[in-house]
């Protein structure tokens, strides 16, 4: 890590003003939403910006609230705030648990959910779980707003569909109620996870009506597979028999890469191990 190069920090009062600043600074500017990834990259001289636009001070952008059967989390809410939010713990404990295991307490205290998603670092815990939960992202550019699903927000390694002057205002997560069973499990040796696996099931007695499995960290962006999700529905006994096939389908869709975290074959194997563990945990 080197000394940070000189930059100016701006603190807009509203999302619209932040968007205006983004438009004005162009490639010389970037949103700052905690900086746990951004400042590291800047200290390693991998990224250079002359202007950082601090969205953490925008009033209301860090709120966490329940509204019409959905959980709404502002883009600037910190991991730690989500982890400790009574609304989250009560209504979506899997999210609180996942946040509780993001990086370390210093990162959680400073890093935000919006920052995590928009930086699109491939080893994101929240991205995998939110995709499985069917979360939507509300984006705003000046006065234009749009809503996209997580897979439409994150488009690649460090890549998003955000427009040049667009920012993430908040995340909306549907609350499925009592029939939902969910688990997020991960395998981590280093600073970032080798693999994260989110499994969200809709159950009726012994029958799994709907399933969504997402694997993260093993490839540039979190991945799901319709085939895997199909194999994960049916009676519990039947699904248990199909777990390995589902894992195979998910691994095929994810197409893991060889890197310092491990060989692709090892990661494919881990998908099987952790799909099974997620399944047991979700239904425990």
């Amino acid at each position: 890590m080197m000394p940070l190069r000189r930059f100016a920090m701006h603190q807009p009062k509203s999302v619209a003003e932040a968007s205006q600043m983004l438009a004005e600074f162009g490639e010389k500017g970037r949103l700052y939403a905690g900086g746990t990834e951004l400042l590291l990259a800047m200290k390693h001289d991998l990224l250079r910006y002359e202007h950082l636009i601090d969205v953490k001070t925008i009033p209301g952008l860090n709120k966490i609230e329940l509204k019409n059967g959905t959980l709404n989390i502002g883009g600037a809410a910190t991991h730690r705030a989500i982890e400790h939010s009574p609304a989250v713990k009560e209504n979506l404990p899997v999210l609180a648990q996942m946040e509780n295991n993001v990086a370390n307490v210093r990162v959680r205290a400073s890093g935000t959910l919006g920052g995590n998603l928009c930086f699109a670092e491939p080893h994101s815990d929240p991205a995998a779980l939110l995709l499985a939960l069917g979360a939507k992202a509300h984006l705003q550019a000046k006065s234009v707003r749009r809503t996209v699903t997580i897979d439409k927000l994150i488009t690649g390694s460090y890549e998003t569909s955000l427009g040049a002057d667009e920012l993430l205002e908040g995340i909306e997560i549907p609350l499925a109620g009592k029939s939902q069973r969910a688990a997020y499990v991960k395998f981590q040796l280093k600073e970032r996870p080798t693999l994260g696996l989110a499994l969200v099931l809709d159950v009726d007695g012994d029958n799994i009506k709907k399933a969504k499995a997402v694997v993260g960290s093993v490839s540039p962006m979190p991945t799901e597979s319709d085939k895997a999700n199909g194999l994960l529905t049916g009676s519990r006994a039947q699904v248990e028999k199909q777990l390995l096939d589902a894992a195979g389908a998910l691994a095929q869709a994810a197409d893991p890469v060889d890197d310092l975290e491990g060989g692709a074959d090892y990661k494919r194997h881990l998908i099987g191990v952790f799909l099974k563990r997620a399944f047991i945990k979700a239904l425990a």
């Binding site: 890590m1 590291l40 390693h44 040796l189 280093k190 600073e191 310092l260």
Partner: peptide, 21 residues
Amino acid sequence: LFEELIYEGSQLVNGSILDYR
């Protein structure tokens, strides 16, 4: 268990405590 400096070609590829466990 896990400590190892790794070279890929001419470069040390885990030369930071983010990557060196």
